[in-house]
Structures are given as C-alpha cells and as structure tokens.
Design a protein around this nucleic acid. Structure first.
Lengths: 233, 233
DNA sequence: CCAAAAGTGTTAGATATACACCCATGT
DNA sequence: ACATGGGTGTATATCTAACACTTTTGG
C-alpha cells in the first residue's frame, strides 16, 4: 500500500479526485463534454474531465481548475452531484471521487480545446453517450438527476441558454432534461403567465416574418414566482 | 506537512472524514443527534458524529460504522448531503468531510449510547440547536435542505414515524421539516385522497373515544401517486 | 407542393386554498 | 369550565391537461 513517496501520514488516506459533468445546449439537444483518455487505465475510452485535488483548494476549486486545464471551459454555474467511493472503482488503487455538474451557454460550446492528458475533447448528446471509463456511467446518471432537481430550485435552465432565446428552444431543453414531452401550447402559456420571461421587441420586418419570438430571463419575475411556489410545499 | 507516519504517497493527500446528521421525530418535534466533543479542538462543543474513512469501506459505510460506534444508532435510511472542503475548516490540518443525513423511527431514539470519543450523546430539537464545532452549522443547514428535498422524492417521512401513526403527527413532522404551517383540514384531505395511507381499524371502544385516527404507510399507493406526479414535470 | 416549425385559445377536470364549528379529554 | 387537540365539509380560485388549425419558410 505504501508508495514510498514524499508525503507520509500516520493513518491511511485515500486519493481524492474530482470529476466534471458539463452540460450545454446546442439549440436542439442537451450535450455533455467528454475527453478521450490518453493513458491507462481505460486508454481510448471516454470520461468526464477531472483530476486530483491539490493542497490549497476546495473540491469545487479543484474541479474548475481541472476543467479549465483539460478543456478550456469556465462554467456559468457549478453544483454538487455526489461522492463515488466504491472500494474498487479505480484499478490503480483506492480513489474517492467527488463529482460536480456545471452549465455553460451555447456560445461557449466551441471554446473547448483539449489540454493536458486529454487526447481529445468532444460534445456528446446525452441521448447518444459512448461507453465511459471507470464508474462514469453512474456519475452521468446522477448528474442528470441533479440537473433535473436544480431545474426546480435554481434557474439553471437560463444559464444553459444565451441571453436571448425562444420558447421552442426552452421547451426542447426541458424535454431533454426531463426526458418527457410537453404540450407546446401549455408550455408556452405557463411560462408567459409566470412572469419569468421578458419579451424582446423585434424589428417589425422580422416580427412580420413567421419566426419564433425572443425572450430574456427576468430575474425579478423569477424570484416572485419562486416565492409563491415555496408557500405551496 | 509530512507527519512522518507509516503511510507514504507520491503526491499530497487530504484527510477524509464523514459526518452524520441523524433526524428523529419524537411525536412533537424533529430532532438531531449531537455528541459532545471530549477532545480538542472544540472540546466541550457539540458536533455531529463522524470520523475518518478507512481503507476497505465506502464513505457511506464509514459513516454508518462511525455512527454505530459513537452513538449506537443504526438508521432506517441514509442519503448524501454534500462535501465540506474549505481549506481551513479543521484547525488540525487539511480535512475534507462528506456529510450524510439519516432517519430513524421514534422508538429507536432511546437506543442512543455515547461510545468512543463521544463524551455525551443527546437529541436536540432542530429549532433549539446549540453552538456547533467546526463548520457543522453549515452541514446542518444543508442537511435540513436535503431532507426537505428528499421528502418529495423518497418516502423518508414514513421512516421518521413508527409503523402506525396519526395524521396530526405527520403534519407536525411536515411543519418542522418545511418550516411552514399547514392547514389541518387541507393537509388531511390531501393525504387521505392520495392513497398513500391505509387506515388502521381500531376497536370500537377506542374509536368512539375522541382520539386521533391511526394510519399505516401504503407503499403501493405511494408508488402510484408518485407516478402521477412525475408526469407533471 | 410538401414538410417542418411556430403562432394561437378554449374547455373540463383536478388541485389548492380559505375558512368555522363541534366534541372529547384532561386539568 | 376551560384549554387543548382532533374530527369534519364547502365554495372559490387556480392550475393542469387535452386538443386543431393556420402561417411561414425552406427544400
């Protein structure tokens, strides 16, 4: 068990890593960012970007540092997914990982750039995920679940869209996150009635053409809306 | 930094601990289990039971082991709360903690018995918590929040009650968890209509007396109810 | 010309809220 | 007798769900 290294402790300690599940919406579908492993174990397999935690950073800071180093992504928001500590989850030895889920805006998607020990970095639609290294399947399922819950408690959906967006886009995003189809008319009615969205006035030229109306997130309206909901519980 | 111990590694590793927030309902109020620290740091202060993770156990297994050792409690269910990894959260040195929240039934409450380095173990009403050691305030707030969310997704409320319970008890439990008063008539109507509860037939003698009706959790009804809800999202 | 995508309104059912009185028990 | 706690029903408002046609654009 002892690696004969320079860091010695009185009691056993596990190695601690962080993993990042980054979500992005390309206008059609929800995607996550994977890197292809260039080293053993699982060489050639896809995995979530991550790495070892260092001495002077929190787990979240470690996650964001690794994400930036390996993929050049800096998220809009990052939340906790959970711990993954099965004794045999890493063939190299006992490693505990803590996973985070992040969201970025569509326009940030092409900032990706594989760095460090990431051979390649690529977006995958959440409905077409490849086989993953380690227990990253498990991490993925838990991350989607966390995203679904966050949808209700934080306005992450609006951090997954650009500043100005359309209702059909918002609906497609909900469909992918919830894995459930929504009725278009009811969906629109609900959001328009909620006060969460502010319409963006378009040129009359554009407006006359038959394209989707544009909206912006209205933080004040959102907070009021949430206050009403909370009373319900 | 090097403690000159027997466990040596090539790279730095943090110490990893687990903490347990155990919730129990005494019929009137929601309580959590604290132990009084018998050692420095924070000697004499109250804290959640927990300890260091060992080599052949997951974090959850470590949490349950420490809980049993320090307080003699074996919970009905345990869920994740989150990570606590501020660089200076433990004055003894860099320590990362992962917190779990557990629930037990009322009749298990008096099984507590302080063991190991727990000088004393005691239940505190969640509305009358003492000052806590480390960043345990933070852990507590996050644990309550996790419990509130679990209420919607898992039937933890029924693991916090004995097998047979009354609607007023259930309502008091909800009040404490949600921090919000409910209308008695609407609360009862909702639960009775939901199919989640099965009435327990009482003797006519008892029934004629004016005491609260008894119910039992109905798992099948709960699953049907949940299925309907999920479609709504 | 056809397919794909977006706009738009109504109705019926379900759910949520607000609200008051009586009875039994124990002090 | 009084305070506490528990049982019970109705009316209103809100929310949810189901449902079809027209317009525009691009191929």
């Amino acid at each position: 068990m002892e690696d004969n290294g320079n860091y010695c402790y009185k009691y056993w300690r596990p190695a601690v890593t962080v993993d990042n599940v980054v979500f992005a919406f390309d206008g059609k579908h929800l995607n996550t960012l994977l890197i292809r492993r260039s080293k053993e174990p699982f060489r050639g397999k896809w995995a979530f970007p991550g790495g070892f935690v260092e001495e002077n950073e929190t787990l979240k800071e470690a996650a964001l540092r690794e994400l930036k180093e390996e993929t050049n992504i800096v998220p809009q928001r990052t939340g906790e997914v959970g711990e993954f500590s099965d004794v045999d989850r890493d063939p190299r030895g006992r490693t505990i990982s803590f996973a985070f889920a992040s969201v970025i805006r569509p326009k940030q998607m092409n900032a990706i750039q594989a760095g460090d020990d990431a051979g390649e970095a690529r977006w995958f639609s959440v409905s077409e995920m490849p086989e993953l290294a380690f227990d990253h399947e498990q991490i993925f399922r838990k991350a989607i679940w966390a995203l679904r819950i966050a949808l209700v408690h934080n306005p992450v959906q609006f951090l997954l869209l650009d500043d100005i967006f359309t209702l059909p886009e918002l609906q497609r995003l909900y469909t992918d996150i919830c894995g459930h189809e929504f009725d278009r008319r009811n969906f629109q009615k609900k959001f328009l009635a909620s006060g969460i969205l502010s319409p963006v006035l378009q040129d009359n030229d554009e407006k006359s053409t038959h394209t989707a109306n544009q909206y912006r997130f209205n933080e004040g309206g959102y907070l009021d809306f949430k206050k009403k909901i909370i009373t319900k519980y």
